[in-house]
Design a protein around this nucleic acid. Structure first.
Lengths: 180, 180
DNA sequence: CATTTTATCGAACAGAGTGTTCAGAAACTT
DNA sequence: AAGTTTCTGAACACTCTGTTCGATAAAATG
């Protein structure tokens, strides 16, 4: 790949990532990305068709990195059968995710969150298949410290499954589950 | 209030509600709403500043109806103390929500879902305060039948708390909980 | 190093959507 | 019937999008 292409590509990625720290994805314009990345307008559009496609690609690449060695064909444990392996795999993934934490935080806001989530679940499913996973997996202490209340979810600490009323959006999703 | 105003207002509401059944909120243009509602462009903007503000108002009004008699000052049970009362209150609210089911379904798609959710939790909190609510509340059979898998949540049937890997987005929220 | 290939630049353009303005028509009020 | 309020719709300025194209710069090739 041409050095110039790599340069612009990362410039665009960095620009968007930076902007996502300040603004929600929907608020960001292509012009802002172009200015931030210091590239020409037509250059942007020769790399990405639209702003949305840029986000798609970014998420795609990020997850293919995070899951790269996880899904390598050599290591073909059947995780679905051995619970210890499964747990190890999950820890492994979470560890890699911590590297990308800042990028992920930026994306997890507004509309862009949905694209992220789509890719995440897609990759997770390809790693775990239809296996049932208990989510109170033990991960590194480093990681545990970062658990705080999120506007869209709520903390499930080791104490138990109590939930607060107005905070649990899953409740809402159950209530208004769509047909089909 | 002038009949004309009421007429346009409901025409706009109906138009948006109808469009939301076919398209996501972000895809809908003001012009589409205007055409669907059969009103003049300037009329729309004399009623609502923007498309987003229209959604805000719609959600606001809907919930003020749903919670109207719930929050009436005469019925000032302290729901937070009596669990039976609390359960009754929740059932009461859910009952009213069923009336608005079609509207709600329409809104619960794309970006508009967030506005809905914001108002819902807001009203829920004002009804229940900081009370802890177990979400496996028994509601009418009619309501139970409508529980299906939602893309963003997952069914929690009476069997138990098992969860599927890629489907549980709450897990994601916990992982990437934001600071502050 | 010279040549060829490829990428970038940026101005200019068409198109879509937004939100405002205003004069005239229509509907309500008293 | 006269006065007030609301609706209408064309016209406008504005912002953002995505495309085109000739000129320029940089990389790859032999």
């Amino acid at each position: 790949m041409d050095r110039r292409q790599i340069k612009t590509r990362t410039a665009i990625y960095d620009a968007l990532t930076g902007l996502l720290r300040k603004y929600r994805f929907e608020e960001i314009t292509v012009q802002q990305i172009i200015d931030e990345a210091n590239i020409g307008r037509s250059t942007f559009y020769s790399h990405f068709e639209t702003k949305d496609q840029l986000l798609e690609q970014m998420c795609k690449e990020m997850f293919s990195h995070v899951f790269s060695d996880t899904l390598a064909p050599e290591k073909s444990h059947d995780y679905s059968k051995n619970h210890e392996d499964m747990r190890a795999l999950l820890e492994h993934i979470l560890y890699h995710i911590l590297d990308h934490k800042e990028n992920i935080r930026s994306i997890m806001n507004g509309e862009s969150e949905k694209v992220f989530t789509r890719y995440f679940t897609e990759y997770l499913e390809s790693a775990f298949g239809e296996v049932i996973v208990h989510m109170d997996v033990d991960v590194t202490d480093d990681f545990k410290k970062q658990r705080k209340l999120h506007p869209y979810g709520q903390m499930v600490d080791s104490k138990g499954p109590e939930r607060k009323a107005g905070k649990d959006h899953r409740f809402i999703y159950e209530v208004f589950a769509r047909e089909e």
